[in-house]
Design a protein around this nucleic acid. Structure first.
Lengths: 255, 255
DNA sequence: CGTTACGTTGAACAAGATCAACCTCGGTGG
DNA sequence: CCACCGAGGTTGATCTTGTTCAACGTAACG
């Protein structure tokens, strides 16, 4: 149950456009979407030299709230970020997908616990190396700042959900957000309505985790899945697979 | 009901430590706590040249969700930041105090509506000027980034409240956070327990706004104020003044 | 003084939580 | 191979918290 630890990497090879970039990066499935996409080949090489892969298995804790924060990209797999209360109640504050970035205060302590909900491969960045690069490269700066602001916008969107929405609206919103994440990740270029209608995807987390994320109980989540399905907005196939059968209706039910 | 518009400022004068900084800044009550505190005298002069004051009266909207975002410091007064749903439900996502910084995506659109809840004086920064400074001065960079991360941590803390806490816990937490804000602002150096016990302060927002902030109704907020008071944790004097009569108890009730 | 916005209090109600039973499915070991 | 086990999920009955609806206070302000 111990995390796999990678080794430093340095070999380079030609990318398709004829520029030398690190081998590990040419082979990286998420490079085009991750923070790395903001980097020039030389910047990418510098960052790569301060990076190594680590793997985690389902259920493993990657960082604990209160421990020193880490800087990493998700190369593959799904993680959740959560905050806990003394008595054990937990709030999931975000669900992280491949290409997502994990980072707390640059030089401090993590304010969340990050946990793998599938087998996960991370591209860890050395803190000192990352900070130096951040100082030297305006592109990385901008990307890093934009990431923080984007997370803030997400958190506030979710505050609106937790503070104001009904159970049904919460579950509908959760599904829409998942669908959006998947279409975004696939970089589709046609309108969202079309892209999402009929779309089938896997819910990457358990009912208990959905409950914690939406501020509901497992039972309520289960019941609302049922009613959304009864209303023809979605169709469930087993417990993890959903089909969006009517985005317009789902969107209507989401607020 | 129109916002007052200031004029550009450039005269300088000696500060107490014998260094030339802008007159407007020496006279600024919040300089030591605001983002400006990260700046050298020359940086401060540069930023000041790209800044002007504007005033707002109670209730005025400063930025609207979806409109271009602004970059400003609160020189005096209190604001709220909120998000709205199509049907009118609103979630307050933060309460802003003097020295707090207002800024959305650097080059984009605001994801919240900012509104004055008292008469407010803002120190507006010209966007282009601010961006240039940001590129040139590492100190400002760091401060700006730290601000975004700090807001993110606050938002997530509040997600835990909205998703998991009971009504009483929410109201207790709200009061504790207010008390902390006031002691922080005063830069006290003795332990928080001592500082807060017996402390009297003003609740800067209405019951309706507390309700929106905590995801409750006005009636529930009112009732929980009553029970907190019955339990001896606080004492209300009228509708806006509170005394923390027992921090330990209040903290206990906050989770 | 009304008038009005803000706040409190009480009674009835409902959304969602809790409690409990049962289902389903993917191991695991006899 | 199948019986058993346990984790995750669903469904139903009941209960509770907080909402809703309604009446009444209170204080600032023209």
């Amino acid at each position: 149950m111990r995390a796999g630890i990678g080794t430093a990497r340095s070999e380079c090879e030609m990318s398709t456009d004829g520029i030398m970039i690190p081998q590990a990066c040419t082979r990286c499935a998420v490079r085009s979407r991750a923070l790395c996409s903001a980097l020039s080949p030389s910047e990418l090489t510098a960052l790569n030299n301060a990076s190594r892969f680590r793997t985690f298995t389902e259920g493993q804790t990657i960082v604990t709230e209160g421990d020193p924060s880490i800087i990493a990209n998700i190369a593959s797999g799904i993680c959740i970020e959560k905050k806990a209360m003394a008595d054990g109640r937990e709030q999931i504050v975000s669900v992280l997908f491949p290409a997502d970035f994990i980072s707390g205060e640059l030089d401090g302590v993590s304010d969340t616990t990050v946990q793998a909900v599938s087998d996960v491969k991370l591209c860890y960045h050395d803190r000192a190396g990352f900070q130096r690069l951040l100082g030297e490269h305006a592109g990385l700066q901008r990307a890093y700042l934009a990431h923080a602001r984007h997370e803030l916008a997400n958190a506030r969107e979710w505050m609106l959900l937790l503070g104001q929405k009904t159970a049904e609206e919460r579950v509908a919103t959760f599904l829409l957000r998942l669908a959006t994440r998947y279409t975004d990740a696939g970089c589709r270029h046609y309108p969202l309505e079309t892209a999402v209608d009929g779309m089938v995807f896997e819910i990457p987390i358990t009912r208990a985790q959905i409950a914690s994320y939406t501020g509901l109980t497992i039972e309520t989540v289960s019941r609302k899945f049922r009613t959304l399905s009864d209303q023809g907005a979605i169709a469930l196939d087993g417990t993890r697979a959903v089909r969006i059968t009517n985005v317009a209706r789902l969107r209507l039910l989401s607020e």
